[in-house]
Amino acid sequence: MKKKAEILRLDIVLLGDFNPKLFSPAWFSSLDLIGEKEAEEAKVELIHQDVSIFNLDWCRIQVTRDRFSIFTEQEVYFTKLIDLVTQTFTCLNHTPLRAIGANWGGHYRAVSEEEWHQFGYFLAPKSPWNNIFNESAMAQIEIMEKNQVAYSATGNMRVRVSASNELKHGIFINVNDHYALEPDAKRLGCKDIINAFEQNRENSFKKFELVVNTLFKNFEEVPK
């Protein structure tokens, strides 16, 4: 398995109460969150009271009444994307948020079709599916671990592995590093949840790298 991702992506998702119509390129520019020229050159799909969608050269932003998401597949802009999120909701510090998650994803190419299948069988053995399928194959697998130390009792990390939709004989590994408020917490603004996200930004990518490297190491140690 080639350990260096051919495509990396970062998708940050916030859940809460939003006013989609507010989030326009011009609004971001008015607060100096993006440049004036960048705002003028943005490709706007829709700015509406229920949903706003637009693209900058380096990222895509989509906002609905209960979800804000921003993503990029340009690794050089990962830090800028995180900064934009934290700066935006520092400005909008009265916005009620209930959860935030950083979704790190990488597409990795197997050296052969045989290795590609072997990795799938490593994660999802064929034997439990005997006499159910004539020829089973892993489509997607998702594992979750409670992550109380990094965040809170409601924080967790989810790892999803599937066939890549970008690479032939490729594997997509996604790590969702998630933080949510306690179930009975009063959502009085977003200062605390944004601070928690900011404090863990360095560790978040490191956890993604650790997951990927450990998966590949464990796979290499399996007798072929």
Rank of each mutant, 00 (worst) to 15 (best):
E182H: 15
K146E: 07
T79S: 08
P183I: 15
Y121C: 01
R158L: 12
H94W: 04
W129K: 08
S152T: 14
G106W: 09
E115H: 08
I82W: 01
N134A: 07
T90A: 03
Q118I: 01
F172Q: 09
E75H: 10
N93V: 07
A163N: 14
M157I: 10
H94Y: 10
P183W: 13
H94F: 09
P183G: 13
W104L: 00
N147M: 08
E113C: 08
N103A: 08
W129R: 02
N156D: 00
R160N: 07
L181V: 15
P128L: 08
D83V: 01
A99N: 04
M138V: 04
K146G: 04
W116V: 04
H107R: 07
V175M: 05
V111S: 14
Y121S: 10
E182F: 12
Y77I: 07
A163S: 13
A163G: 14
I141W: 08
T154Y: 03
N165T: 10
N147H: 01
L97H: 03
G170W: 06
K126C: 08
R160E: 05
W116Y: 14
A153I: 11
V159K: 02
N165R: 08
I141Q: 04
R160G: 09
F172A: 10
F89R: 05
W116E: 00
K126S: 06
A153T: 09
C91F: 07
H117L: 09
S136Q: 13
H94L: 15
T86H: 04
D83A: 12
N147A: 11
V111G: 13
L123K: 03
A150E: 10
F133L: 13
S127H: 11
G101D: 01
F133M: 11
W116H: 14
P96K: 09
P183C: 13
N176R: 06
K126M: 01
W129H: 11
N103R: 12
N134I: 14
R160H: 00
A102N: 10
G120P: 00
E182A: 15
P183R: 14
E145Q: 14
E114Y: 06
E75M: 02
P128K: 10
S136M: 09
N176F: 03
W129A: 08
Q87R: 11
Q74T: 09
C91V: 14
